[in-house]
């Protein structure tokens, strides 16, 4: 087993897929000479050359469209957004082309493309650079949406995303690129659409993903010290949702908390609440709780930002609440 950072796991996934399949190429701002704004493409330009590691001008609408077009003729583009905040400019391409071309052409064309990059809050980057796009992209039929929190998941899921015949939105985190973890030397894939139990437990189901995974695991430790046994489920894929894993756990614990980086209005958290109340209504012993951002744009000031980001103590408090403690 190798001990890798998430950025290295992402790089290895791209490298292995580029070695395996010459149709795979990487395109985005500063992915080549600069080796990626967060060094996720270190060494790739050197290994694969400028035809397959393509530096672009500041043109998100443009290079997203070029990627979709290239995918339509059979290539396997990986489009890197320096942050998903910049995907706002490319939204029209993703919403109206990537997600709909297969449908609108009656399946004559498919769009096997990956849009990847950091998502949600980092540290003091203000309103426009701290946004979570989970709810926005997961809302769109025709897209698959993945969010990773460990090097193992990042590598296995990115490889699956690259091989997937559909457009995949792949969320990473600026603050988690240096997170380390064990990654097998031999090849492996993680199927899109499968949640992972990061910590088994019996009394509360804590559903989470992305940056909130490590925070939720800390919250589970706080609860453990208090004699409350929390099961932490990392969704890993936000669309399609692993409904079976969530409902199975809720039927066991009879209580659910959802912790994530994102606004409360609508979104993946609200979607989970809907499914839990419909599919496990008779098993619930308490209303489902959500811990997420405040319903406001982010602030730049460190103290205000801290208040908006779900902390282990907040998640622990929600676990206590559903357990009526």
């Amino acid at each position: 087993m190798a001990n890798l950072q998430i950025r290295e796991a992402i790089r290895d996934a791209m490298r292995e897929e580029m070695e395996r399949d010459e149709r795979v190429f990487l395109m985005g701002e500063e992915v080549g000479h600069y080796q990626g704004a967060y060094k996720c493409s270190q060494g790739l330009l050197e290994q694969f050359g400028a035809k397959r590691v393509v530096d672009t001008p500041i043109t998100e609408t443009g290079f997203s469209g070029v990627g979709i077009g290239a995918a339509m003729v059979g290539l396997r583009p990986i489009i890197e957004f320096m942050t998903f905040n910049f995907s706002a400019v490319a939204f029209d391409q993703i919403l109206n082309n990537a997600s709909k071309i297969h449908h609108m052409t009656g399946g004559q064309f498919s769009v096997p493309i990956v849009f990847r990059g950091p998502n949600a809050a980092a540290h003091m980057l203000g309103s426009t650079h701290s946004q979570a796009f989970d709810g926005i992209y997961a809302h769109i039929p025709g897209l698959k949406v993945v969010s990773v929190a460990t090097p193992y998941d990042a590598k296995g899921l990115l490889k699956s995303a690259i091989r997937d015949p559909n457009p995949v939105i792949f969320f990473e985190s600026e603050l988690m690129y240096a997170v380390r973890g064990e990654v097998p030397e031999e090849e492996y894939l993680i199927p899109i659409g499968e949640a992972d139990i990061k910590r088994p437990g019996e009394q509360v189901t804590l559903i989470t993903w992305g940056q909130s995974v490590p925070t939720s695991l800390e919250a589970a430790k706080l609860a453990e010290a208090d004699g409350l046994d929390v099961e932490v489920i990392d969704l890993r894929t936000l669309r399609p949702l692993d409904e079976a894993a969530v409902i199975h756990s809720v039927k066991k614990t009879n209580r659910a908390v959802i912790a994530y980086h994102g606004w409360p209005y609508g979104g993946v958290g609200a979607e989970l609440v809907d499914r839990i109340q419909r599919m496990a209504f008779d098993w619930l012993d308490a209303p489902v709780e959500r811990v997420c951002y405040d319903d406001i744009p982010f602030s730049y000031a460190e103290n205000l930002e801290h208040l908006s980001i779900p902390q282990p103590e907040d998640i622990y408090a929600a676990c206590r609440k559903v357990a009526y403690r």
Binding site: A88, G126, S127, T128, A301
Partner: peptide, 23 residues
Amino acid sequence: RGRGLPGSLSSREHKLMGASEAL
């Protein structure tokens, strides 16, 4: 009020509008 990004400055009184950073 601690909300704007550090790069640019906004002041209605001084007729300055800061960049949104969405280029």
